[in-house]
């Protein structure tokens, strides 16, 4: 296949295919909205003793107050109402809830990344730690930590730690793993030739680390940070569930499910998705800027 470049490349290899798939997904969504919401409307019509035409049926299924599946435009309307039309400080503003989730995500992400880097450095520097710690780091990920999140929150609450930190700890636990594994790989990535060259320069261990190993690990660091930031958002959202649903996107999910407010659930879900995409995009942007300044990409 011929490689397309520039604008037409973007148009034919990106925009058209992705646009088509998105369009198809929205169409399927609308179809399912009608199908899933129809039984309720038919039931209503039967109780009222009236006949209902197909046109009326479709119209009504797309405008229910508590639909089984809300239509895309209902979700969009709800998001518009709870972002643009509410004050940011209002408890019904999605910006307010998003900010709470975002702050514990970022705190957890920073802690997790720092811990991951520290562990990786220790593992690369010490053979004992490499052999004793690495298998347990891998085992630690088979523990479904998200399932234990409620306990961590409640227990920390009992000893007086509440608010941001417990949620951030869960995010940190989730995000340290990809960073640790990626960084171990990255710190070991320098060519044996380069390591030999450093030896011929009579470089000390610290010099080898700062001038060779660390720069070589930077691309690995950013790749694993992209994974880490996405799962630390998941950690923050799940961490909000057991706190009695006070605030945050996870709380919106929980209250939505308690009161059958499907539109609220979907709008929280979509905003979480947008937040995740935004965070991954920001990390990607940072990686491009840093690597360009380091002269690693041109």
């Amino acid at each position: 296949m011929r490689e397309r470049r520039g604008f037409s490349g973007f148009l034919f290899d990106r925009f058209l295919p992705v646009g088509t798939v998105v369009l198809v997904i929205i169409m399927i969504w609308y179809a399912f909205t009608v199908i899933l919401n129809a039984p309720f409307e038919r039931d209503q019509a039967a109780r009222a003793g009236t006949e209902i035409t197909t046109g009326q049926l479709i119209e009504k299924t797309l405008a229910q107050e508590r639909p089984v599946l809300p239509a895309p435009h209902q979700v969009a309307e709800e998001i518009w109402k709870t972002t643009a039309l509410k004050k940011i400080t209002s408890k019904r503003s999605l910006f307010y809830h998003g900010w709470i989730t975002l702050s514990s995500t970022v705190l957890g992400f920073v802690m997790g990344t720092a811990l991951g880097i520290l562990l990786a450095v220790l593992i690369v520097q010490s053979a004992v730690l490499d052999k004793s710690l690495m298998p347990w780091i891998i085992t630690s990920q088979t523990v479904p930590i998200l399932a234990v999140a409620p306990m961590i929150i409640v227990v920390l609450n009992a000893i007086g730690i509440s608010g941001l930190l417990p949620k951030a700890l869960i995010s940190a636990y989730l995000s340290f793993f990809p960073v640790a594994v990626g960084m171990v790989k990255g710190l070991r990535s320098p060519d044996p030739m380069h390591l030999d060259l450093m030896r011929t320069y009579n470089a000390s261990n610290a010099q080898v680390f700062w001038k060779l190993r660390w720069p070589a690990a930077v691309p690995f660091l950013f790749t694993s940070m992209k994974v880490a930031v996405a799962i630390s958002l998941v950690g923050a959202i799940v961490g909000e569930l057991p706190t009695g649903a006070v605030a945050g996107l996870g709380a919106r999910l929980l209250t939505g499910s308690y009161y059958g407010q499907t539109i609220q659930i979907w709008s929280a879900l979509i905003s979480a998705a947008v937040l995740a995409a935004l965070l991954v995009f920001l990390v990607d942007l940072a990686s491009r800027v840093v690597q360009r300044r380091m002269g690693m990409v041109h």
């Binding site: 899933l36 089984v68 499910s257 499907t262 995409a277």
Partner: peptide, 14 residues
């Protein structure tokens, strides 16, 4: 990369 776990309440409802 999304928090797919968020669909849990919807699935429980369905």
């Amino acid at each position: 990369a999304l928090p797919v776990i968020g669909i849990a309440p919807i699935m429980v409802m369905w």
